[in-house]
Write a protein that binds this DNA or RNA. Structure first.
Lengths: 352, 352
DNA sequence: CTTCTCCATGGAAACGATTCCATCATGGTT
DNA sequence: AACCATGATGGAATCGTTTCCATGGAGAAG
């Protein structure tokens, strides 16, 4: 438990001033002799600059914050791994928070990060645009990942918040109430859902349901677009985030609409619930009901039948977001849309 | 992007000195009048003390570090959620690192945390005892979770490092080379494995294999103890951590020893590999081979047949570890052993 | 009335780095 | 030889907080 050497100790040992030590260590100009002596002294004393002093002086903490809804969800685990990989190679620390999908906890965690002067943040947002205004106004560089905050707008469609992403499909962009100017790294949900729906249609399915969770408004919207008018709103149901609630939603869906023949699950937790509920109700997959699930998690292959999924690159998503948030400041970050891929396994069959 | 109010601003607005503000806000003594004015001014200015200044002054960063091998592994996701839940309720930040099971990366991350002056750390260790000496010597409060570092001792048995835990089963404790005095929160692997082996024996199985990954030396040891002499060392195989390597290990095991009739997988990634490899080789579970897997992950139930598992409370483990690391300093932390539970589903049957 | 104690109070030091700025040496140019 | 430009150098200021310490005032005890 010996105390660490400070820059002052190094300066003394090298016979130079602290300013010179700082310059040598952070790449400023110094004479060859001084540089050599400083380096030797630093090595000798096993000196490591304290992030504390530096942070205070620059009034900012290095590294980045990361806010996800739930680490138990394999997809967010993948995303976090991507962020951590990028951060590690940059030598930057990552402060992690799990929001449980609760806007209130999210707001608390943002407050905590502000207190720590963490000024870069990657978030899978749970709260609406309002929640994010304090962070933006405090000067944080925010990058959204996986999804955008739902707009707390009057029309109540749960439209996404970033204008330029809405225009992707030639759709009339939502009237921008006051879009957050926050770059995002997301999967191409529109294409992913469209491909899945077309695939199911090709198998003869007419009544296709969408089973979503919190934050899946964008995917639900993409689903509406993909099935086209008239949309049967009863076939679009939402759980609240917990596995129980997802199960209840799935079970309720099967029972209230026995005429449905296919389900698109908006996330792997929902997919899990859809399988479980089907089994409980003696619905066979894919004979009685076909299933496509968002997220290609390792266990999708273990199911029987193995699940057909819409794969999105969780790890890449995290990595790219981390790159963006680290580069920001240098260059104005631009949003990124990552491709999805329909991986056909065994959970979809022709309409019964 | 307005700059935040500092304690000086509050002092000025309240007409008191900075010392008084600090005392009021951190629970020191102050007159009612002063307290009231300070509180009012702080609220008025939306003052939040900067963690930067405080950290520098106390020469330590609040919160804690958390090091896990891989967030993609659901079990570590659960553990992390537990840590985060505890940290959140204490208002403390968590700095996360993912080691990939690599001692070198682990050492790097420890260095990074030291640089940040994070002096409390919860870790699922990958490196051996040597790796941890620098952290301990720097005065970090370390709590191990899920496992203990393998002892880099001469006897090469991969014995665990904490003496008092080794004595649980009345076994001659390994000659303590120089045990780390680090408290740990672990599952009762010995009992868990013993129960699983007895269960399999009860079903008539004679040749039971153990499939482990990095860090599962303790479980392998418990397995040796449970099966009793003579131990068929060929039936104990290890993967190196990646899913591919786990798969290769499982596949190799099945092929080299077609006489085995049951497998105990030391973790959920290994279990996944065991299922996949069995399917590939046309071994039916549980008809041809019975399987017990460590970790009760949500998808264990989705498999067909649903997997019989040794459940260990990942979330609790994380929560308890976080409690311990936060309380340390107040009280010398004591190790905790959490119970495991054999959950019988459908992946074990009578010996063919 | 004096003296002693106790508490509230605010100024200032400390924490460990970065960075501004004044100083000094060096070498080249006129 | 005088002058200037350039670059290295170290002292000191700075960041925002906590905490030490000296001061002063009020109340109690003599």
């Amino acid at each position: 438990m010996e105390k660490r050497a400070t820059i002052k100790d190094v300066a003394e040992a090298a016979g130079v001033g602290v300013a010179t030590v700082s310059r040598v260590l952070s790449g400023g100009s110094a004479s060859a002799g001084a540089r050599e002596r400083v380096l030797a002294a630093a090595a000798q004393l096993d000196y490591r600059p304290s992030a504390l002093g530096r942070n205070l002086r620059q009034r900012r903490t290095g590294g980045m914050g990361l806010l996800v809804p739930d680490l138990t969800d394999t997809f967010y685990g993948q995303l976090a791994e991507g962020v951590l990989a990028c951060a590690r190679s940059a030598g930057e620390p990552v402060v992690l928070g799990s929001t449980g999908g609760d806007p209130e906890q999210e707001a608390d965690l943002i407050g905590m990060l502000l207190e720590q002067s963490v000024d870069r943040l990657i978030a899978v947002p749970s709260g609406d645009a309002e929640t994010w205004i304090p962070a933006i106004r405090a000067g944080m560089t925010v990058i959204f990942a996986d999804r955008l905050p739902s707009q707390a707008s009057a029309d109540g469609t749960g439209q996404s918040a970033v204008g330029d992403l809405m225009a992707l499909d030639g759709l009339p962009p939502a009237p921008p109430a006051r879009p957050l100017d926050v770059p995002a790294v997301v999967a191409d949900d529109r294409a992913g859902i469209r491909t899945a729906v077309r695939y199911l249609r090709g198998l003869g399915h007419k009544r296709i349901a969408f089973l979503g969770g919190p934050g899946h408004e964008g995917r639900a919207h993409a689903f509406r677009v993909a099935v086209g008018a008239p949309v049967d709103e009863e076939l679009i149901v939402f759980g609240t985030g917990s596995r129980d609630s997802a199960y209840a939603a799935a079970s309720g869906l099967y029972q209230s609409r026995p005429d449905l023949s296919a389900v698109v699950a908006g996330g792997n937790v929902l997919g899990e619930a859809a399988v479980l509920a089907a089994r409980e109700l003696d619905l066979r997959v894919p004979k009685d009901v076909s299933l496509v699930m968002y997220d290609d998690v390792p266990w999708a292959e273990l199911c029987s039948p193995p699940l057909t999924v819409i794969a999105q690159p969780g790890r890449d998503m995290g990595y790219r977001a981390a790159e963006l948030v680290l580069r920001a400041g240098t260059r104005r970050a631009r949003s990124v849309v990552l491709p999805t891929e329909l991986i056909i396994r065994g959970s979809c069959g022709p309409r019964r």
